[in-house]
Simulated assay, not measured.
Amino acid sequence: MATTLPVKIEFSLPEGWQPAPPDEVGAPGVAFVALHPDSRDGFTANITIAGKLREDEADLVAIADESVQRLSTAATVRVAQRTQVGTPEAPALTQTLRVSTALRERPLELVQSQVYLVMRDVHEPAKRAVIELVLTAKSSQLDEVADDFKEFVRTVRPAGPADA
């Protein structure tokens, strides 16, 4: 079942990307899905947005490791790259995963680019929302969609008071 984000955000999708209902495209547990129909080649490249409130002290590396563990229950996963970015006030982490799985009983090699953003509650700094932005694509599709994902990530921000 699709979820909602713990904080309101706003973003812009690059040209050529289309929103899709998470439950209808097999992405339960995420709040938003966008598909790139032009990349369809046995697999459609996609962007997902998920997030949850975290009241624990887990750092972004531990949270990224949780994602690797979750994916590892259904696929073989290798962390290809991981970088902490952002600032102390707005920490973020990026990681690239190589995922070996199967689709309709055929082997499928995917790349996931994941970005984790922390958004703190201004009234209760101990409460923080961790937003997970993910691009999933076949290696052969990556050149076509990687810049779009970077462009998308640059547009993600907390929704302004008028949007709340």
Rank of each mutant, 00 (worst) to 15 (best):
G16S: 07
D38A: 14
S39H: 04
D143K: 13
L117N: 03
L110W: 06
M119T: 10
A31P: 03
A64F: 03
Q81G: 01
V68W: 04
R154V: 06
L60G: 04
P6S: 08
K52T: 12
A90W: 03
K150T: 12
G86I: 08
V111Y: 06
L71R: 11
E66R: 12
I47F: 13
L97G: 02
R106T: 11
A64C: 04
L117A: 09
V145D: 01
T87N: 10
R104A: 13
R104V: 02
Q69W: 04
D163N: 08
G29R: 01
A20Y: 01
R70F: 14
D38N: 10
E10D: 09
V61G: 01
D147C: 00
A64D: 12
E109M: 05
G51C: 11
A62E: 15
E15T: 07
P158Q: 10
D148H: 14
R157M: 10
E55D: 09
L142N: 06
A164G: 03
Q69S: 12
K52A: 15
S12L: 12
F149D: 13
F152W: 12
Q69E: 15
M119D: 14
L108A: 11
T73C: 00
V156I: 07
E24P: 03
L142C: 03
L135Y: 05
A34K: 08
V118M: 07
I63T: 15
A137V: 09
A75I: 02
P158Y: 03
T3V: 15
P91F: 06
L5R: 09
D143Y: 01
E124D: 15
S139F: 06
R128F: 06
L93G: 03
V33M: 00
S100L: 15
P158V: 13
G16C: 08
H36I: 01
E109F: 02
F43D: 13
I131T: 05
V99E: 06
S100K: 13
T155G: 07
A102N: 11
P125R: 11
E10W: 00
T87M: 05
H36C: 11
V61M: 04
H36M: 00
T136G: 12
V118G: 01
E109L: 13
Q81N: 11
V118I: 13
R40H: 07
R78M: 11
T44K: 00
L103C: 01
F149L: 07
S140N: 09
A31W: 04
A159H: 04
F152I: 14
V145A: 03
P19M: 09
L5Q: 10
P21E: 14
A34D: 04
L103W: 00
V33R: 04
K138D: 08
T76S: 10
P14N: 06
G160Q: 07
A31F: 02
E55R: 11
D23E: 14
P28V: 11
V25Q: 00
H123E: 15
V30L: 07
T3I: 12
L35M: 10
T73E: 14
V33E: 02
T96F: 00
V77L: 07
V77W: 03
